[in-house]
């Protein structure tokens, strides 16, 4: 794990508002994203974060 489980939970928790609000913002810029599209982006983004979080810690001893 790269971050703690509570850290992961909070990261996802904060990501959701960002996605929801970005969708509203993009609409004002004339870029319309559908609900399904937003869901897809959300799931992908969360997936990437979960994937990154569960990667093994970089091994510091290698660097030396």
């Amino acid at each position: 794990m790269r971050i703690s489980r509570s850290g992961l939970l909070i990261l996802i928790g904060i990501l959701i508002p960002v996605i929801v609000e970005l969708r509203t913002l993009f609409d004002m810029l004339g870029i319309e994203i559908s609900v399904a599209g937003t869901l897809l982006i959300g799931v992908l983004a969360i997936g990437v974060i979960v994937f990154w979080a569960t990667l093994p810690e970089p091994d510091d001893s290698d660097a030396a």
């Binding site: 939970l9 909070i10 996802i12 928790g13 904060i14 959701i16 508002p17 929801v20 609000e21």
Partner: peptide, 11 residues
């Protein structure tokens, strides 16, 4: 979980 859920629900 509860506090994060409130945050997300309210969003």
């Amino acid at each position: 979980l509860q506090v994060v859920l409130w945050f997300v629900g309210m969003t």
